[in-house]
Design a protein around this nucleic acid. Structure first.
Lengths: 221, 221
DNA sequence: CTCTTGTTTCACAGCTTCTTAACGGCCTAA
DNA sequence: TTAGGCCGTTAAGAAGCTGTGAAACAAGAG
């Protein structure tokens, strides 16, 4: 469940927002001024922040800037009226979007969807096979969220298998992709690397099953 | 007004993109292949580039690489589905983000916003990794609040590592960011600078760990 | 010019990873 | 049963990569 943080000094507005957000399935926490808001953000690590610009004490802009020093959490600005200058300032300071009070709940939800999805989809390319996740950009593998250390060859190998998870991959296909451009006869070494991989994947990971005479298949649940 | 450059061989796609971008207030120029795209980029100096990966002639990757030799303009990749490997290659070559065809205009605009704003506002003035603090504004580093003297190359290097603290950074990624635009083979010198950094970070600082055959990872507690 | 500072190159030891080879088990077909 | 193919496993040498020190090289300041 995702957490939302509301930073607004009006009790009524906080109540309204809380209602809307809880209906949407968010866990909600509130703060009545900027200082408290930053503390809450640091403590609760929300997945989205709704920030009123017209705060007593620390201004909304100031809160946003300080927040952005250490966090990339999506921030939706709530501004009172069409104050173009302030809105621009907020967007430049790293806000993700804004709504102008008064607003409809439909609009609010729509914008929340957009900014949250944006963050969500900005992940690096990944391949998933059961409990195993391959991060292709960072060359990292995790098994049940625990880092798994793979050598370059092993990574390339499991990548080919995971790309076609559930289907047979021919030995030739594997060799072509893992040992691309190399002339050595790798069909011998393939067995060894498969063996290493199976050991590292252990019981919890997806199973590499052999299809005699043809190739291998990665079996995820 | 910001200028956008579209590099795509499909007329229809160019037309769609132009419409979207002009609605957003961009000045738009187009190119139907990579060679033309590079010329347009050099001539018009766009503020954002939309680059199709599947180009005739010069591949999209190739275009990106050549572009990155002299320009830091934000590049959004347009790729068709199921080209994970190519996407990774593109991101490693310096692309800022990608969208997979077919895509919604909302998503496209969202990503454009992100990558364009990131150039200006994304960088926080400080990066911290354990006891190490990098002040990007003043180009100063402190270790346990004590000033740490770093050469420019060392600073750039630790910055790249610290920005992705805890994650692997490929040797290519490092070299591209630290020795941007230089042709010399820096893969030799990288080892030396890593060595220097490790000495300066000593026992108290974050550890730079090597992932053999892949790259390095900064380990903060 | 000389000195200083920073960068790159080189060589080599030590370590990790890859390849190769060997062997035994399982299955199938004769 | 026996022979032959294919696979899993292990071990050891080969190949490649990394850490380190020193020296050459480049650039700027005094």
């Amino acid at each position: 469940m995702s957490k939302a943080l509301i930073i607004d000094d009006e009790t009524q507005m906080r109540r309204l927002l809380r209602m809307v957000l809880e209906t949407r399935g968010h866990e909600v926490c509130e703060a009545a001024d900027g200082q408290l808001g930053l503390q809450e953000a640091a403590f609760h690590r929300p997945d989205v922040v709704l920030l009123d610009l017209g705060l007593p004490g620390l201004s909304g802009i100031e809160v946003l800037k300080r927040l952005r020093e250490w966090s990339d959490v999506p921030v939706l600005i709530l501004s009172v009226r069409d104050q173009e200058a302030v809105k621009v300032e907020a967007l430049e300071a790293g806000a993700d979007d804004y709504v102008t009070k008064p607003f409809g709940t439909a609009e609010l939800l729509a914008r929340l969807n957009v900014i949250q999805r944006r963050r969500f989809t900005r992940q690096s390319p990944q391949i998933t096979a059961g409990a195993l996740v391959l991060d292709l950009l960072h060359h990292e593998a995790t098994l049940e969220d625990a880092p798994l250390k793979l050598t370059p060859t092993e990574f390339a190998l499991i990548k080919v298998l995971a790309e076609h998870a559930g289907r047979i991959v021919t030995q030739n296909q594997i060799i072509r992709q893992v040992w691309a451009g190399q002339s050595s006869d790798a069909s011998e070494g393939l067995r060894v690397h498969i063996n290493h991989l199976r050991k590292k994947l252990g019981e919890t990971g997806p199973k590499i099953v052999n299809e005699p005479g043809i190739g291998y298949r990665l079996e995820a649940e």
